[in-house]
């Protein structure tokens, strides 16, 4: 499996650390209801199909990435840097 890091270019999967669903980007407000925190930390759509998840270019540029890909075919559809996404900053 190869991911194209927006900075480093196409690299082997072994260079990346995997975190999980992009849900981890949607941090609830500190005073959000417990259900919101439960959903944020634990509950997942977990699709058999296209998903968006978080990878870290551990052995490369240290970018966190949002990868759009298919969990059935392993097709990689898009890779973008977490820091560069629109409205990404808190």
């Amino acid at each position: 499996m190869r991911l194209t890091c927006p900075l480093c270019g196409e690299r082997d999967r072994r260079e990346f650390y995997y975190y999980g669903s992009e849900d981890y980007l949607n941090r609830p407000a500190p005073d959000a209801a417990p259900q919101a925190w439960d959903d944020y930390l634990h509950n997942r759509d977990n699709p058999a199909g296209v998903t968006r998840d978080l990878w870290y270019h551990d052995m490369g540029c240290s970018s966190w990435l949002v990868v759009t890909r298919n969990t059935v075919t392993h097709d990689i559809l898009a890779v973008e840097a977490v820091a560069d996404r629109k409205g990404g900053a808190a």
Partner: peptide, 12 residues
């Protein structure tokens, strides 16, 4: 890695 995540995800 944690600092990188918090920074890039929440306060880039």
């Amino acid at each position: 890695r944690h600092l990188d995540f918090v920074h890039q995800a929440f306060c880039a």
